[in-house]
Amino acid sequence: MTATSTALLIDGFERVREAVTETLDGLSQEELDWRGADGRTNPIGWLVWHLARVQDLQVSDAAELPEVWQAQGWQQRFALPYPPDASGYGASAEQVDRFSASAELLAGYLEAVHRQTADFLATLRESDYARIVDDAWNPPVTLGVRLISTLADDLQHAGQAALVRGSVKRR
């Protein structure tokens, strides 16, 4: 990876932020919390929170920085009925049912996570992408792989949130 790689990663994470901003625009609390016609769809709000938490966890760990969630007081602002380190990974339907947060809160948290991500990415040199950040896997996970997998996960969830938005607006 090169300086171009860094610019592409920054652009990719910016696209996540832009997609989420568009998805959240003008939604009511009821629309953010809607679980689909079957009552089991992950709601827009939860999807946005989850993608921001995953990005926060993965990037802060790789960058050896504190999580924005705790360091900047977002955990207290959200006041969710979850453990402090929750990210939504493996959440049950009942746990998702208990989620609710305003569009402003969600956008603010994602913006703070995005800032930390972009600031970290701007410091990287080509050699940094080969650094091992997780040796629990075979092969071990490099920083480059971790960043791409985080970006891919975020883009998938942003797309899911946009799809749910379309459904909630058409009901």
Rank of each mutant, 00 (worst) to 15 (best):
R15E: 08
T142P: 04
H114M: 00
R131A: 13
R15H: 07
L32E: 13
S102T: 15
S149Y: 07
R115L: 05
L106D: 10
L106G: 06
T21H: 13
Q116R: 13
I132W: 07
V145M: 11
P139C: 10
P140N: 05
E104T: 15
D11N: 14
P84K: 10
F13Q: 10
D154T: 15
Q70Y: 01
A107H: 13
P66I: 02
L121K: 11
Q116V: 06
G73R: 07
L163G: 10
S92V: 00
E67H: 11
D56R: 09
S60K: 07
A71S: 15
A103M: 05
R146Y: 02
S102H: 12
R131G: 08
H50E: 07
S92M: 03
H114F: 01
G166T: 13
L80T: 12
D119A: 14
T123R: 13
R15F: 01
A112Y: 04
R115C: 00
H114R: 09
L9K: 03
G144I: 12
G166Y: 06
T23F: 02
W137Q: 13
S28A: 05
V113I: 07
V59W: 03
P139F: 09
A130P: 04
A103Y: 06
D85I: 01
Q55L: 02
A122S: 14
P140Q: 13
D134V: 06
A37Q: 15
S5H: 14
G144F: 11
G166R: 15
P84M: 03
T6H: 04
P66D: 14
N42E: 05
T150Q: 03
L163K: 11
T21Q: 14
E67K: 12
N138E: 15
A86L: 01
S92H: 01
M1G: 11
W74I: 01
A71I: 01
Q70A: 10
I44S: 08
D97P: 00
A101T: 12
D25Q: 15
D154Q: 15
L163P: 00
W69S: 09
F99S: 08
D97N: 08
S92P: 00
Q116D: 10
N42Q: 04
G90C: 03
M1Q: 12
L147H: 05
A130F: 04
E31V: 02
A112F: 01
L9W: 06
N42P: 02
P43W: 03
L65A: 14
A71W: 05
D33N: 15
S5N: 11
Y109E: 08
R35N: 09
T4E: 15
D135V: 03
S127R: 15
T21C: 01
S100P: 04
Y129K: 04
L27C: 06
D25V: 01
V164G: 07
Q70P: 00
R170Q: 14
E14H: 12
L47K: 09
Y89Q: 12
S167Y: 15
H50P: 06
V164C: 06
A37F: 05
T23Q: 08
V168R: 11
A103L: 04
A136E: 13
Q72V: 01
E94A: 14
P81V: 03
T4A: 13
K169M: 12
D56V: 07
G12N: 11
